[in-house]
Structures are given as structure tokens and as C-alpha cells.
Design a protein around this nucleic acid. Structure first.
Lengths: 209, 209, 209, 209
DNA sequence: AATGCTCCAGCTGAGC
DNA sequence: GCTCAGCTGGAGCATT
């Protein structure tokens, strides 16, 4: 320990140790902060749960919100394809096709043959391209109005595949949230007695010829 | 196991070592087999990809097929709730509500007040309970017929929330697979030119007043 | 689009579905096999535990045994460095330096100044290079003899840093295993504090040799 | 959004949405902070690497430093047992037994037969219990002195199993760090090619108390 | 090609 | 006793 008289002994020699220690302590400090934050997150989730929200759903939403446009596109596409495959394997049981999968399936296999002129009939099956933004906006407003008028969300007049369907939904939901009364029941995690649970046909014969 | 008269060397002493070694070798053998299988799985996935399938979607399906009834129920519910929340936050942008979420939202907030008599109007919004299995089956057949007749999948006559909608879908899809021609284009992973992509406005202002 | 009567209808159409289903089922089959093996591995580990072995240690050994030479070298070096750092931070508390770290630390800081001729004194601190293989072998034999003579493993005459120290250890250990009686006590997981750990007999059936 | 005169306007309607959004945003905020910290940690590690430290070793040390006493004990024991097993399988090749494993192996197989009176001979194989703290301290000082006198770390006079061995090591290492000159060569990751690692002295500020 | 990063499943320890 | 959160280990993926 003697080591002569320099004052700067300690801050010079052993520089490597000091450096190492410094690095380690910096990391430890950061790890501690991180642990705090992780704890906070857990607390918020606990709170959410205690208020009746589905934490898993919240987590999924947060993930979606964080997605970049490209990631979102990729996820959407993958989900659509899953729907298509699911339909192919006869696994729909009870769950209708998602809209996007519907669109994908309805795509003409030989699109290069030209446009599909029969598009444009009855109710609303309109090509996205042919709809003006104001049509979309109108549908949104219609949805709001519908909610105000007491209509149900399932009374959306647009059929699947029509972009106005989504817009109407949004309008309805928005109105239900900010203009109507609180509709907490639909928001909460249901957990209603779990009436059936058992007699469900467990893992049915997957057989599919 | 003989272990008779020998100087008790190899088979007795070192019993612990032998035991240990045996255990380790058994595990190693199993690990090797496992590695082989993992490799095989990877190969199959590679093959699937090379044939144009979306491996991620396949993995999702395999997971679903392996689910127990309870797990399936839980997953479904969580997905529904996610939809509901997504709608609440105005994140639908382009994706209409899923059917289940629609049902959930349309549930009367005070179901204990009695049945909802106004149910039963126009097109097809029928309560699941009131539909006989033969109705479902009929819808399925109708779907098949519709496909044969050249109708598109988006022309499903049943509105969202009607269980026959899913049945019709299944019929249509089934027919499209086994009675129609092969429709590979819709099945394959699209990757079609990615026409837009471009100035993608990543993480747009999430602003939703 | 219809395309009705071709002969190759069934074996062509739905080809994509059939292909998809085939791929999925192949994967499922493999996954099942994998699950079986994973289960077997778990069983063996359970057995090992029930016989008093430390499963974590066994896993570590299996990993080491699977290592390539290069991986082994890398792991060793990283461990040495950890020792060196640990020493630097005064974290040795009770654990002496590992041999390798000792070597590393004893390396002359300025190796370019020339060889370190002062190497070769007293007890045994001999350079690896200067030791003939027969010296190593002799040390190994000495270890065996020492065990037979009732010496303890801590009576290894070679000092740290001498490669013969390891050889002697190996000889001693080998003798303790194959020439002596089984010495199970040292092999078993000690659990000294909690003397009885209750009459717990986890996974009971599993024979206790 | 109007929300003017209703009594149950802001604090009632849309309450669930607002609540949900609030929760989600709180989590997002925290996640963002967390991401920042994770990034910082990565940066520090990168810096450490660029200064020649072995990041993996640093991570290991941080983990050890964070361990509770019980965890530390458990880890130590598991490592010892690994050594013992390794020896049993003849995997020592080149690596002598660790001290702890040595101790464990030297434990009398039948401790219940009575105390081991032959303990206490020649050089230093002293029971921990019989060593006074001052003996340990003395060994530590001896280690320091030895370093000052130019001795090598491998010249530790205490044999394996003697607690003073570790103390001597600590003294030596401490002296090598704080009283000697910096001995960076032994500290650095050995990458022998890059002899100097530049005069890099990034981010010097970092308090060196 | 090799490395590092990220995600995911499976396991373990706590807590109601 | 059961669940559940945290964690470790591994596989896949992107990058250089």
C-alpha cells in the first residue's frame, strides 16, 4: 500500500480496475432504473386488471400501436393468410372469415385478364378505388348517427369487403364512446359464470377429407 | 450386473460414476434425437416456404389445432376484447370489427333487464339460439352452391353476427377447394410488387381526439 | 372461371389445400415426436434428481461435452477473464483464483521484453512447454497412487499453475472411482443445512438404488 | 365530443375509453423509458468492449454482485458439484479441480464416524474453523507484500483448500491494482493481434472517485 | 459465414 | 394447491 507518495497514485495506476468498476457501476445503475420501470409497468397492469380490463388485450394493442407501417402491413397480411388457410382446412368453425381474407379470396385468380366489370352491383360491394374519401367520411357519420338513433353495431348496412363498413364501425364506436352513455358492460372482461366450459366438444376430430 | 467375484472393480466401485455417466449418455442420446427432429421440422418449413406458403401462418394454425377447447375459448375471447378495445381507441383504421367483437358490443348493457325483443328485424340478425342445426347446414350448402354458381365469397348473404355467415363461408371455401379448380393465386403468399410501400408515414400521429 | 369437367379435377384442384394439409400434418407429427422426446428427457432428469444428482450440474456437463474445441476454448477464456475481473473488484471473498486466471495474471505484462528466465525455481512452477508428456503421465500415476495410499485430494503436491496439478487430480479422481469403493457421499448433492428436507420423496416410485 | 350540458358527460360517458387510453399511454410512456435505458446499457457495453473488456465476463460479474447470499451459496455449490462430476467423468483435461470441489471430495465419506483427527499436518491444510481472522488478514497482507516484492501470483504459499490462499490472492490482486502500475495487459481480452488497442480513452469524464 | 439481437417457450419460484 | 409472473435457454432473423 505504501507506494511512495504520489497523490495521484490511485487514480492512475489501477486505471484498468477503476475503469472496469466504473463501467460495471454504470451498468448496475441503469439496470436498477430499468428494474424500477419494469416494476412500474407491472403496477399499471395490475391496476388495469383490477379495473376490469383484459391485460393481454391491452398488451396486444400497445404492440400494434408501436408497429411501423411496414410491420403493420406485414402483420395484417399474415393474419389474412392465416384466415385463408384456416378456411381451407375447414377450421372456421363458428368464426366467419375476416374481411381481408374475404377480399383476398375474392380476388380474381387471373387479374391480368382485365378488370372485373361485374363489380359494382347491389348493396355496396364497391372497389376501394372507386370510393371517394367523402363516401368514407359519410359512412363514418352514418355510423355515428346510427348509434345515436339507437341502432346496434351489427346493423352496419355495408357488406363485408366494403371499406365503408369499417368507417361505419368507427363512427358507431366513436359515438358510443363519446356521445352516448357509458357502456361499460361491453368493455369489461366478461367472465360471466362460464356457463358451459365442459360439454364443449374438445378437440373435435380434425378429420377433413 | 454380474458382479460376482471380481475384485469388485469396475462394476461396483464407481457405481456413482457409472450411474452418472449412464444418465448423461441417455440424455445426450435423447437430445440428439430431438435435434434431428428439430432439423426435420425446419426442413418441412423450408419446403413449405419454397412452395409459396406463409410459414408464420402455418405455425399459427398448428398452434390453434393443438389448442384445447378451453384454450381456444380463452384465445377467442381475448381476441374479441382486443377488437373492442381497438375500436374504442379508434384504431380500426380500415379493419372492420370482427364478428365476435360486434356481438359483444351489441350486447345489451343491462342484459338482466330481460331479453332484447327488438331483435328480429330485417335481413338475418338471428339469435344463435333460435337457429336450428339444419339452418346452419343449409347455409353451408348454400355457400357451396354459391361458389359453384360463380358467386364471390363477399356475396355471403348473411350479415355479421349471424352464425350462418360462418357456415356459408365454410361451404363456399370447401367448394372452392374441392369442387372448383385450383385457386392457387389466392392461397399463395402474395408479395405482388408491393406497389405502394413508399413514403410510408411510419407511426403516424396517433392523434385521435 | 368455372371450368367444370376436366379430368384432373380432383387431383389438381384443391391441390393447394392438400399440399397445405400435408405439410401441416407432417409438422404436427414431428412436433409430437419432439414432445415425446422432451418428455423422456424430463423423465431422465427427474430420475437423476431422485438419485441425488444435481440436475443443473448434469446439464452443464452435457453442454460442455457437446462443445467444439473452439467453443470450449472461448468459454474457458471467458471464465478466466471473469476470475481476473472478480479479483480486481475484490470479489474473491473466499474463492481463490482459478488456475487459469492465475496463469493469466502471472503473465509478464511486457512479454515482448523477452522470455522470462526466472521461471523455473523451487517447487514446481514449470512452464507447460518444458514438461514432457511423460512427466504429466507420471503425475497422473502419482495421483492414483496417492489415492490408494489414502491421501486426500487436497494433498496434491503440485502448486497452482503447474499442469501436473491437473494430471494428479485426474489420477486421484480416477482411482477414487474405479479402484476404490464407491464414494457416494461426496457425489451426492449435499444439502447440509436442511438436514432432512423432510421425508420428502419426490417422484416416489422412481427407485432409489 | 360536444359534451355540454349532460350531467354525466365527461366523468361518466366514455369513462371506460378514457380510462383505457390513459392506462395504455402510461404503459407506453414507461415502455419508452425502458427502451431508452436498455439502449443506454447497450451503449455502455459497447464502450466496454471497445476498451478491450470482455462484456460477457462483465455481465457475469454484475449478476454475481446482484446475488443474495443464499443465491450465491447455491451457485457456488452447483459449480462445485459440476467440478466433482467433471472429474468423475474424466473431463478435467487440463483444468485442475476447483478449490471447493477439492474440499468436497476430501470430505470424509463417513463423517459420522467421528472427527477427522489426521487433519492438521504439514503445510497448511487447516480447517477453516481453526483459523483466526487475524490469520486471514495476515495472509492478505502477505499477498500484498509479495506483489510489492515482485512475486508472482502463482507463488501463493498456501495450498489449495486453505482459506488463507484466497486471502493471499486478494491481497496480491489488490496490490497489483492500487499500488503497482497499471497492468493492463493481463486485464484485457487477450486478442493478441491488436497489441495496443489504441490510445483510446473515450469518455474520460466519468467520475473516478 | 459468423455474430449479435430478438422473440418465444418451457421451467421455477412466489404468492393468494 | 394452483396460478402466475419472472427468468433462462434456444431458435430464428437480420446484419456485416
Amino acid at each position: 500500500m505504501a507506494r511512495t507518495s504520489e497523490k495521484h497514485a490511485i487514480d492512475h495506476n489501477g486505471a484498468a480496475q477503476a475503469e472496469l468498476l466504473s463501467l460495471i457501476e454504470r451498468i448496475e445503475r441503469l439496470e436498477e432504473e430499468k428494474a424500477n420501470i419494469v416494476f412500474d409497468i407491472k403496477m399499471v397492469k395490475t391496476e388495469a386488471k383490477s379495473r376490469g380490463f383484459d391485460v393481454k388485450a391491452i398488451e396486444r394493442l400497445i404492440k400494434e400501436r408501436a408497429e411501423s407501417a411496414e410491420q403493420r402491413r406485414a402483420r395484417r397480411e399474415s393474419e389474412e393468410i392465416t384466415d385463408v388457410y384456416r378456411a381451407a382446412l375447414g377450421m372456421l368453425d363458428g368464426t366467419p372469415l375476416g374481411e381481408a381474407a374475404r377480399q383476398r379470396l375474392s380476388k380474381d385468380p387471373e387479374p391480368e385478364d382485365g378488370p372485373t366489370p361485374e363489380e359494382g352491383e347491389a348493396e355496396a360491394p364497391v372497389q376501394k378505388a372507386t370510393l371517394a374519401p367523402e363516401d368514407i367520411a359519410a359512412a363514418r357519420e352514418a355510423g355515428k348517427t346510427a348509434f345515436t338513433a339507437g341502432q346496434k353495431v351489427i346493423e352496419n348496412p355495408y357488406i363485408a369487403g366494403d371499406p365503408r363498413r369499417a368507417a361505419w364501425d368507427e363512427g358507431w364506436c366513436h359515438a358510443s364512446g363519446s356521445d352516448g352513455m357509458d357502456i361499460p358492460h361491453a368493455w369489461r372482461r366478461s367472465k360471466p359464470a362460464r356457463p358451459a366450459e365442459k360439454p364443449t366438444d374438445d378437440t373435435p376430430g380434425k378429420g377433413e377429407e
